[in-house]
């Protein structure tokens, strides 16, 4: 397990990470979800020791990582948002290069390299130059290269930002297989649809954790009613009309062609909307994030 205790980090006068604590269970997928600038990358960089924290402690299997820095670098692999591949080298040459960097023994190298390329679906592109790969394939190659170190912990910073939807799904299928192999995976992402692949979720916003829990508990213990409404008329005009209900307007939001309503207050206000159909629904992570974001906003206003 990795445990973060009261971690803070500021850059000049900006608090990037503000007193956060959470635990990363082993052999599971932990997802740190939040917007650009919410502090996700800073958290990951502190875990792998790329930047120094201002305060707090991080433990890896109950050992302080600052004092045992070599331990974490020997069992963890980190893939930054923009991983540097050698674009003039082929897929295979990149793999060879990184295998040498990680000092993979010569005897094992061929077997390991081929196994990883098959696993990530890159085997058919061995001879293609990295510079000529699509965005999704580049990320798969980057992942393959870091797996050459045979890590127990795999830490991926926004591996799918700017990657197309199909490549994102493929990427997460590989991640799920790695979990089946017993790896511990930590991923940051702004996309809540792909965060659905996580076992444990940490929502970060403005450097603070607004909610953290296992996926099951987040979904089963959702504290409000949620409705999915297929509205009659233009969805944006309906939202505009709701603006006059100052306290309520934020509880209605669009999601695709549907209007969602989180009933936080006691009374139900769905009658304000002209609709074709309405049904109560189980929350997706996106709804759960929105709920806790609202709660955080209300708390900040009260403070």
């Amino acid at each position: 397990m990795v445990r973060l205790e009261n971690i803070s980090k500021s850059f000049k006068n900006i608090k990037a990470v503000d007193n956060i604590s959470f635990e990363i269970p082993e052999s599971k997928i932990t997802i740190i979800a939040g917007s650009d600038g919410s502090g996700k990358s800073t958290i990951l960089k502190m875990i792998v020791g790329l930047i120094k924290k201002d305060s707090g402690k991080i433990y890896l299997r109950e050992k302080n990582i600052v004092e045992n820095y070599r331990k974490i670098t020997s069992i963890a692999a980190y893939m930054p948002e923009r991983f540097s591949l050698y674009k003039d080298l082929t897929v295979e040459e990149n793999m060879n290069f990184f295998a040498d960097i990680y000092q993979v023994p010569k005897k094992k190298k061929e077997e390991l390299k081929n196994r990883l390329l098959i696993k990530t679906g890159m085997n058919n592109f061995k001879n293609r130059r990295a510079g000529n790969l699509s965005g999704g394939m580049k990320q798969k190659l980057a992942l393959s290269t870091i797996l050459l170190s045979i890590p127990e912990f795999i830490i991926l910073d926004e591996p799918t930002t700017g990657v197309d939807p199909l490549s994102r799904i493929e990427f997460f299928n590989i991640i799920k297989e790695l979990k089946e192999d017993g790896k511990t995976i930590i991923i940051s992402t702004p996309y809540l649809d792909e965060a659905e692949n996580g076992d444990y979720i940490v929502f970060v916003r403005n450097g603070r954790i607004i909610k953290k829990d296992s996926m099951n508990r987040l979904k089963n213990n959702f504290p409000a009613k949620l409705f999915r409404i297929l509205p009659k008329g233009n969805i944006f005009e309906i939202i505009n009309n709701l603006k006059k209900h100052e306290d309520l307007k934020d509880n209605f939001y669009i999601q695709g062609k549907y209007l969602k309503y989180i009933q936080i207050e006691e009374k139900n206000y769905t009658h304000l909307i002209p609709y074709y159909s309405i049904e109560e629904e189980k929350p997706k992570l996106e709804d759960i994030y929105i709920y806790y974001e609202r709660m955080e906003e209300q708390e900040l206003k009260r403070a």
Binding site: S35, S38, T161, P190, R205, Y253, Y289, I290, E293
Partner: peptide
């Protein structure tokens, strides 16, 4: 809207 949370996107 790449890299932003659902609220900002909306």
């Amino acid at each position: 809207t790449s890299g932003v949370d659902p609220e900002v996107r909306r």
